[in-house]
Simulated assay, not measured.
Amino acid sequence: MSETLPDLHRAAGVLFDLDGVLTPTAEVHMRAWQHVFDDVLARWGVTEPYSDADYFAYVDGKKRYDGVASMLRSRNIEIPWGEVTDPPQAETVCGIGNRKNAAFAAALRSEGIAPFPGSLALLEQLRAAGVPMGVVSSSKNAQEVLGSAGIRDFFTVVVDGVVAERDHLASKPAPDMFAEGARMLGVEPSVAVAVEDAVAGVASAAAAGYAVVVGVDRGAGPQALRAAGATGIVDDLSRLLAGASH
């Protein structure tokens, strides 16, 4: 990439999204969503199939139940919200979300996960430089993914779907989660860096007032990321390593 990219090694703090930024779990999420929505739409007689474009438009970066509701709304489907305790077979927003989570958890435990090599290298460099780091993820599985990938100890702060639900933080693209991440890390967004691969996440960080929002293009597309507020685009975090050729 030819554009000038920020030097994260001099940042007051860096807040990373998890799935698709640090770990390739976005692919596991995508497969789980595909399985669940294929089944739901087929059983309900919806002719327009679920696609990767739907994932990026309606699900990516959002809290699980918000993603379900957004996707169903795109097909003019409204069903009861239900309760977070709904069983996976319940035909509610929460039930469908829990069905997806069960599929994701089963895949994660059977396949395991490792961080992207470029992401791990950047985390190691930033830790050596003494840069405070945190994770801002809509996933309720963030702690398990970080532990499975062996990178939990890099972060002093994790704002995930569990924290968002507990503290009533609005889902990305609202600024709440990235604003809370900066507050917990003890940095002002105006001097911090956010790193995101989801359009909703980029919009969240931009709305929270982050000085730099790095968009990681894992499929959302550079134009969509820029339109949401990304100040720079990379295809892998190795582009942000000290001495990397931009």
Rank of each mutant, 00 (worst) to 15 (best):
157 V>Q: 02
120 L>F: 09
167 D>F: 15
147 G>D: 13
176 D>E: 12
165 E>L: 13
170 A>L: 14
134 G>W: 01
154 F>G: 01
128 A>F: 06
147 G>C: 10
158 V>D: 07
119 S>N: 08
143 Q>V: 13
137 S>I: 05
153 D>P: 08
131 V>T: 10
143 Q>I: 09
135 V>F: 00
172 K>L: 10
129 A>K: 11
148 S>K: 12
140 K>N: 07
152 R>W: 01
161 G>I: 02
150 G>Q: 11
164 A>I: 08
114 A>C: 14
140 K>P: 00
118 G>P: 07
171 S>R: 02
143 Q>L: 11
155 F>M: 01
159 V>E: 05
149 A>K: 05
127 R>I: 09
167 D>I: 13
139 S>T: 05
152 R>P: 00
149 A>R: 02
169 L>A: 10
137 S>P: 05
129 A>W: 06
137 S>Y: 05
118 G>Y: 09
149 A>H: 04
130 G>Y: 14
136 V>P: 02
176 D>L: 11
141 N>K: 03
171 S>D: 08
136 V>W: 01
131 V>I: 12
119 S>A: 15
161 G>Y: 01
168 H>E: 14
146 L>A: 02
123 L>N: 02
134 G>A: 04
134 G>L: 06
117 P>S: 13
131 V>D: 06
174 A>E: 12
133 M>L: 08
156 T>V: 05
137 S>T: 07
144 E>S: 13
172 K>P: 12
140 K>M: 13
155 F>K: 02
167 D>E: 15
137 S>E: 06
151 I>D: 00
156 T>H: 08
124 E>V: 07
168 H>I: 08
119 S>P: 07
160 D>Y: 03
143 Q>N: 01
176 D>W: 08
148 S>F: 06
134 G>I: 03
167 D>H: 15
114 A>Q: 15
138 S>K: 04
162 V>A: 15
138 S>I: 05
130 G>Q: 14
172 K>H: 10
147 G>P: 10
115 P>C: 09
128 A>H: 10
162 V>H: 10
174 A>N: 01
124 E>Y: 09
166 R>A: 15
142 A>E: 06
128 A>I: 06
159 V>S: 05
156 T>I: 00
145 V>Q: 03
114 A>P: 12
164 A>W: 04
117 P>D: 11
128 A>Y: 08
173 P>D: 04
114 A>V: 14
132 P>Y: 07
171 S>C: 06
119 S>L: 01
122 L>F: 02
146 L>T: 04
139 S>Q: 05
149 A>Y: 04
155 F>T: 03
153 D>Y: 09
157 V>K: 03
159 V>G: 01
170 A>E: 14
134 G>V: 03
136 V>C: 12
128 A>M: 06
145 V>R: 00
148 S>E: 10
146 L>C: 03
163 V>F: 15
165 E>W: 09
132 P>K: 05
